[in-house]
Design a protein around this nucleic acid. Structure first.
Lengths: 336, 336
DNA sequence: GTGAAAGCGCTAACAA
DNA sequence: TTGTTAGCGCTTTCAC
């Protein structure tokens, strides 16, 4: 990489002259500016990012810590973050916590050494289970702002972007009830997560509010075979006429399982699930999907962080929690 | 962040003493080392990464440029890269080219300013179509090594990690023929990609080698509705008794479509597809999957790059191309 | 055993 | 209009 020093030497001027010329300083003569810029162009000069970061004490880099990159929702959020951050000239360093508290702590520590200006993260499963929040506080005390999305630690004071999980399943279940469904099941493979619990509560509330409706809940652990579990659940509960799924795979598998047992969707069973466009097409009929607008969640998280980074800390910006409402995209897996 | 300077001041020693003490230099007295380390511990001192990078002229950061983070295969490779890179103390900066040549160029340029020590990338669709390679060469000329994976630019001399695409579909098609299938279709939504073309060629070779077998090819463009296209393809070609899919969704949808048309899988139709474990479970029966070992691809790419970064350029390391063989994971979507 | 000083690449206050 | 200098945080050579 060519440096200011080399340009200066070749042009027989001082380093600062070159620097100023390239930054269009008014101090420098037109002729000089032209000469400098031409040579810089010729050598494809780019200011060294590391030196700039050191000088300006900021990196224009955001640390993103997500629990699982293979989760389609999280990948989509990451996409949203990346795109939005780029707009404002930020790069992102990605760390994957693998749902582990230890890895989450490490990533936070490792990047809190001047590598990034702040963090966007989704709390790992283990962290949520152990309800550990010290590492977040420590990082923030070091002057690095954090924005949490989706799974958040409520006891940490920071910006947050969340989904209306409770409402989504509450309203989703009610929609099935409005179709006349009497035996509505809830299937989830994210039982341990805060959002999973909220979704379950939404379902429960809707069921309990109706007289004579029973709770039919299937929880699938990470290691288990979803397809197998759902099949036997359907076998044991032949009267199921509606399904609401808390994750993207379960809904699709539920439809396919119904077909497998010669039960027509949506004539015999209606199915709704949290899902993205691409996954919901993996069943016939297509799954009626509760969309979480993952990209928008990512974009919002990035905005919140960048706003904070650009605000002088003296201004004492209040922490905000942004709720991104889900949307139901209906398809032929429900009656109406 | 606390700096050496602050520690030095508080301890009434010089900055260099503190630095040496923390690095266990033999020059420094035992007592001093102890004092320094205690204070550093107390203040949770971490050497500033940016300053180190500037000093040592390397960042321990790898730039990863992928065309699409929502592609499950690519996300998995990214996961593999991240994990392997972390082992060696490298962080990764992720850029998403969105299949655009322009964005790919930009990302390369933007990070080639000292932000990263090298690149791992998968060539974007547009880049492949236009057969543009100047930006890769330029980057390498700037002293930044590149490792390409999956979709590679053959005319660029660099390390590569690829899949045996041709062989996979060739052998896959042969496997279907060995089951007695006579009307085997090839379905692909990645027709424009180098790997897509290779997979098609593998299929064609196997078909052409058999007398009396016809080519049945369905190509789905990005914007099109896969489910719809596959449905009408099946309608128009009622005699299809085998399917080999070049991407992860098509295989799953093919099975579901067959079921929809009351055709038993695998009795009437056998289906094989490039897919991952999670996606292949989205159909009943589960899709017989050609696994690409995405994580291993990522890990290998990271290894190749890091090896090159650690090798003095004087050593003139040869460029290598690593082929990761696919594996077929059979399930009940084929006869045997 | 400890410290001063130079230098990585850059910007900016100040001097000329 | 241009140049000198200091300094961001760190390592390392060379003096003391």
């Amino acid at each position: 990489m060519v440096t200011l020093k080399q340009l200066a030497k070749e042009l027989n001027v001082s380093i600062s002259t070159v620097s100023k010329a390239l930054n269009n300083s008014e101090e420098i003569g037109e002729e000089t500016i032209k000469r400098v810029k031409e040579l810089a162009e010729l050598y494809n000069y780019k200011p060294n990012k590391v030196a700039l970061s050191l000088k300006q004490n900021k990196t224009n880099t955001i640390g993103v810590i997500i629990p699982d990159i293979l989760n389609h929702f999280l990948a989509k959020v990451l996409f949203g973050i990346e795109r939005e951050a780029n707009k404002y000239g930020y790069n992102i360093i990605t760390c994957i916590s693998n749902e582990s508290l230890e890895k989450e702590k490490n990533s936070l520590q490792l990047l809190a050494n001047g590598s990034v200006d702040g963090f966007i993260l989704c709390v790992s499963q283990e962290t949520q289970m152990k309800n550990e929040i010290q590492h977040f506080k420590k990082t923030m005390n070091q002057g690095l702002p954090i924005v949490m999305f989706d799974r958040v630690a409520h006891d940490v004071m920071c910006d947050k972007v969340i989904v209306d999980d409770f409402d989504s399943t509450y309203r989703g279940t009610q929609a099935l009830q409005a179709e006349g469904r009497k035996h509505i099941a809830f299937i989830s493979n994210i039982d341990e997560l805060s959002v999973g619990k909220l979704r379950e509560r939404g379902y429960k509330k809707a069921i309990i509010e109706q007289a004579n409706q029973e709770l039919l809940i299937l929880k699938i652990a990470n290691a288990e075979d979803s397809q197998q579990k759902i099949k036997s659940f359907f076998k044991q509960n032949k009267h199921i006429d509606g399904v609401i799924a808390a994750d993207s795979a379960s809904g699709v598998i539920a439809i396919n399982t119904a077909a497998h047992y010669k039960r027509k969707v949506p004539k015999d069973i209606s199915v709704i699930g949290f899902s993205s466009k691409s996954i919901s097409g993996h069943s016939i009929p297509r799954l009626t999907a509760i969309r979480q607008h993952a990209k928008r969640i990512g974009a919002n998280a990035a905005q919140l962080l960048i706003r904070r980074l650009k605000t002088p800390s003296s201004e004492n910006l209040d922490f905000s929690t942004k709720i991104i409402k889900t949307t139901v995209v209906k398809s032929k897996s429900v009656l109406r």
